[in-house]
């Protein structure tokens, strides 16, 4: 099997323009997913049984069903049921954010539980309110420990974003398919897309290391 990457030369910019699309989806989904994940994790460790029950149910549903199905339900199902318009881009980042939040909440919960119990007791002894204790004392310490796990989640998110091809968002993967269709060559555009994803993940990895080093400065 001969691979001919030169024949694709005019089409490379077309695939490369998908990077921006992918990055937008992943960035918005990562930020929203993280924020929502924090809320969920707080619900899980909190005192209210009802909130804990909701957060657990949410996590089990979003971890227990395929992401591509969640995406389909949001993109095809919701507009029909609710009669609202959902743009492909919005459907994409919503699905990823909602899904990612379920995973992130478990990571953060683990991080919070790993912070020494004495910290909490000391904060209570000093009369610091629950909210402030979480924000200023517990969560910052938890973040440091769970950073590698969070990076894992963001990397997964970046690569998983390729499933938006099913709803026709012009991301890196969909563009690779289209180039494949146009040039009647299958492997070359996909390998090129793979190379782009690899580079993106490498950049994420380096960024993660930098943040990690920065957080460890105080050790």
């Amino acid at each position: 099997m001969g691979l001919d990457f030169a024949a694709l030369a005019p089409s490379y910019p077309f695939i490369l323009r998908g990077i921006w699309v992918t990055l937008q989806i992943v960035a918005v989904a990562a930020v929203l997913g993280f924020l929502f994940g924090v809320i969920l994790s707080l619900m899980k460790i909190g005192r209210f049984t009802f909130l804990r029950w909701i957060a657990d149910a949410y996590t089990s549903v979003f971890r227990g069903t395929p992401l591509v199905l969640q995406l389909m339900i949001i993109y095809f199902g919701l507009p029909q049921v609710l009669g609202i318009e959902i743009a492909p881009f919005v459907a994409a980042f919503s699905a990823f954010a909602l899904n990612s939040a379920a995973y992130v909440s478990e990571i953060i919960r683990a991080g919070i539980n790993a912070v020494d119990q004495g910290q909490k007791e000391a904060a209570q002894a000093l009369g610091i309110s629950y909210g402030e204790m979480m924000k200023d004392i517990i969560l910052p310490q938890a973040m440091k420990n769970i950073l590698p796990a969070l990076m894992n989640e963001f990397i997964t998110l970046t690569k998983e974003s390729a499933i938006v091809t099913t709803i026709g968002v012009m991301d890196i993967m969909r563009r690779a398919y289209i180039v494949g269709g146009e040039t009647f060559s299958y492997f070359e555009p996909l390998l090129f897309a793979g190379f782009i994803y690899y580079c993106l993940v490498m950049v994420l990895t380096v960024l993660g290391r930098l943040v990690e080093r920065r957080l460890r400065q105080s050790d």
């Binding site: 910019p13 077309f14 323009r17 563009r175 289209i178 494949g180 269709g181 146009e182 040039t183």
Partner: peptide, 16 residues
């Protein structure tokens, strides 16, 4: 589904 020339496709070297 724009991956089916000549019915529908994108001239990826030229435009979107």
């Amino acid at each position: 589904s724009a991956d089916y020339p000549p019915f529908e496709y994108i001239e990826t070297g030229e435009s979107e």
